[in-house]
Design a protein around this nucleic acid. Structure first.
Lengths: 145, 145
DNA sequence: CTAATGTCTCTAGTAGCTATAGCTTCAAGA
DNA sequence: TCTTGAAGCTATAGCTACTAGAGACATTAG
């Protein structure tokens, strides 16, 4: 049996994150030691590794919840799992396309900067005037990593 | 003078978002009508358009705050603005690179799915076992748009 | 004048954690 | 055996950038 710290170290998930996953019902409440500390077995380890890997691939927690409940029913057809993965692939591809357009625009801005004063800085100027852009870029991507 | 609704419509920003920008100090508190409604002039319009455009390009609000205060000092050298733009460009490029690796991995998963049952679904199997992956993909990109 | 729409403030919620406070438990060394 | 430090516990609040809702007031079209 593993303590939460060992489980976290083995799966590469942080300790508070493990507790968070339990809280939102992604991980079942584990056994407790006599001193009320969480003790995890092999099943929990596998389940957490699954979650972690899916998160690395960008699946949202709700999708992971669905995938987990699917994986508990080996007899079902896998079309649902396939659909979730395809949706995630589509989302990733869309994000790549959008980010590439942004990259172009930013590169234009940076290249045109003559390193003079703010007064004639292309960066500031282009930001203030969307009309100078090559593309529409109406979707606003989130910048958190 | 524009009401908040007109300002929002003209700049493509939603009304609550305008109030939010005021609350966090990105927009200065505007004049008020006799009935306590916000009234905006040309300056506010330009400033909001600047913010909106920078958000479209993925700049975080803190970077925008810096860019705005730079744009108020036309005599300064524009190296600071340039640096902010370059940082954003770098962030976008890094995100693209990561997403491309994810795309590969997801595509492998989806292609290998034989559309049988969950029991032998490659999607579920690969998710459960990171060892089957071609690359490391340790950074977890956020999937919000 | 009335009805519809717009605006006001304030609070709470979203995703997916992360950080903090104040406490208890555990494992190893003297 | 005692002690000290690390690890664990719960609960709450904070992060980004908004978005949604409640309940009250303002404005405008007909």
């Amino acid at each position: 049996m593993l303590t939460i710290g060992k489980l976290a170290a083995e799966t590469g998930v942080k300790v508070p994150t493990v507790r968070y996953y339990e809280q939102i019902g992604l991980l079942p409440p584990p056994e407790r030691s006599s001193g009320n500390q969480r003790l995890y077995g092999r099943g929990a380890r596998q389940r957490l590794a699954f979650i972690r890997h899916a998160r690395e691939l960008g699946f949202p927690l709700e999708a992971i919840r669905d995938l987990l409940s699917l994986s508990d029913r080996p007899d079902l057809p896998c079309s649902a799992a396939d659909a979730i993965a395809k949706a995630q692939l589509g989302a990733v591809q869309a994000r790549i396309a959008r980010l590439k357009a942004l990259e172009q625009e930013l590169q234009r801005m940076v290249v045109q900067c003559a390193h003079g004063t703010i007064a004639d800085c292309r960066v500031i100027e282009i930001l203030g005037d969307h009309g100078q852009c090559a593309h529409d870029h109406d979707a606003i991507p989130v910048v958190v990593d």
